[in-house]
Amino acid sequence: MLEAHQLGFQFLSGEPLLSGISLTLRAGQWVGLSGDSGAGKSTLGKLLAGYLTPQAGEITLAGMALPDSGIQPVQWLPQSPELSVNPRWRVGRILREAWTPSEAQCQAFGIHPRWLSRYPQSLSGGELQRVCVLRALAPGIRFLIADEISTMLDPITQVELWQALQQEAENRQLGVLVISHDSALLKRLCPQRFHLSSGQLKPW
């Protein structure tokens, strides 16, 4: 269980962005998070994945602090896949950075074998996002923070990607926090949803 207790965060030169945020994400659970631009959704995602350190409160995983080193059980999937990959690496190397997915897994995520020998610049944002999602599903991962990962995909690819992710999450009992502006998508995927506004979480 991933728990955030009374989280508070502000950037160095700014007003408090998040205050008193408490959130629980259980194994196999899908939780949706919406909010206006600049409300702090991505910041909350980064805090939960350990990319940022909260100034108040704590984040625990099964009652313990997030590990300092080694593979992180909470993985953050950012919005821009172009920035999430080393532009000097071929796609095959990027995909296998932490683990080697099977052919069936590649197929499920719509990753074509011929992409693997190409450089990321020659793939579209949507194609690259699928590679990034599968790369993050390394063994040992227990929670995913999916931060607007399907924004740049066409509707059919969106459906394929979410179906593949749902299947993988069900098989491995992964907890997923879906961050999106798309309320229809959140209603479809997540039984439990929150709206982030003025630094506070409100269920909807």
Binding site: A49, G50, Y51, S69, G70, I71, Q72, Q75, W76, P78, S80, L83, S84, V85, N86, E97, A98, R135, A136, A138
Partner: peptide
């Protein structure tokens, strides 16, 4: 500061 560097560390590198 590049995201892929943070991601690599998060992937246990």
């Amino acid at each position: 500061q590049a995201p892929y560097v943070h991601i690599s560390r998060a992937l246990g590198k």
